[in-house]
């Protein structure tokens, strides 16, 4: 995994990002810095504010206050320009299920302004890589959840983005496909593509990510290179031996002792 220079240019920068829903504060004063080419893991328990943050960063939800810079540009000031350089696989995939896989990629490619020939070439490669080429003429409605996920990832890659947002990309994907995805994502980061990933599978995050941020109740608890975050959080254990799971449970699971069912 590539180690970042401390002064490397930033792919994502949020400054005092804040989002409220009525009386409820979903995200509070979030300052994030993601260097270019980083494989960035964004963790938090359910309801911590992960999806809200991703929505704000990708221009799908207006922040209450704060600033968001993607690749040096404010996404809320020039959304179309910035969106052309990013790819998103949201939690809810929102695909057009009455299209075939090939038609969907054609549509997405055109939305990013690619020409017909390039779309055809890239979509064929992507479908082959995702092992969907044999089903490319079938309706997405007939796909399994994992297949839909792979298609959504293919769609997010078709325009060669410099920044990729993946919300739970491995959920519902079988082991073989997960390996293919992991290899692909690692290959992308070696080409200076920044990946911003959320996942509940901590093992995957630990293996893949070189940078990490943990959010809890809307606040950023820790952020930075993976090993330094782990060391900082699990200070009681010998340096270098703390696991992400231990660190994560220590932060977000405090006060939640082991519970048992009274009738079992």
């Amino acid at each position: 995994m590539a180690q970042q220079h401390p002064l490397a240019p930033l792919s994502i920068e949020t400054i005092q990002l804040h989002r409220r829903f009525g009386d409820f504060t979903a995200v509070e004063s979030l300052d994030l810095e993601v260097p270019q080419g980083a494989f960035f893991g964004f963790l938090g328990p359910n309801g911590a504010g992960k999806s809200t943050t991703i929505k704000m960063i990708t221009g799908l939800l207006q922040p209450t206050s704060g600033e968001i810079r993607l690749l040096g540009q404010d996404i809320w000031k020039s959304p179309e320009k910035v969106k052309r350089q990013i790819g998103v696989v949201p939690e809810k995939l929102h695909l057009f299920e009455r299209l075939t896989a090939a038609e969907y990629l054609e549509f997405v490619g055109a939305m990013y302004g690619l020409d017909e020939e390039m779309i055809l070439q890239r979509s064929n490669e992507l479908l082959a890589l995702m092992e969907l080429d044999e089903r490319k003429e079938r309706l997405i409605a007939d796909f399994s959840h994992g297949m839909k996920k792979k298609l959504a990832l293919a769609a997010a890659l078709i325009h060669n983005p410099r920044l990729l947002f993946l919300d739970e990309p491995f959920e519902g994907v079988d082991a073989v496909s997960a390996r293919i995805l992991r290899d692909l994502l690692i290959d992308l980061t070696s080409r200076k593509v920044t990946i911003f990933l959320t996942s509940h599978i901590l093992e995957i995050v630990e293996k893949l990510c070189d940078h990490l941020a943990i959010i809890h109740k809307g606040r950023l608890i820790a952020a930075g290179p993976m090993q330094s975050v782990l060391n900082r959080l699990a200070s009681e254990q010998p340096v270098g031996t703390a696991s992400l799971e231990d660190a994560f449970i220590q932060i977000v699971g405090q006060g939640r002792g082991t519970r048992q069912l009274s009738w079992m």
């Binding site: 969106k83 299920e97 997405v108």
Partner: peptide, 16 residues
């Protein structure tokens, strides 16, 4: 979906 285009699925793309 077939009769009315759900534009909420299009907002992630770079379209004004």
């Amino acid at each position: 979906e077939s009769l009315t285009l759900d534009v909420s699925r299009l907002t992630r793309y770079p379209i004004a």
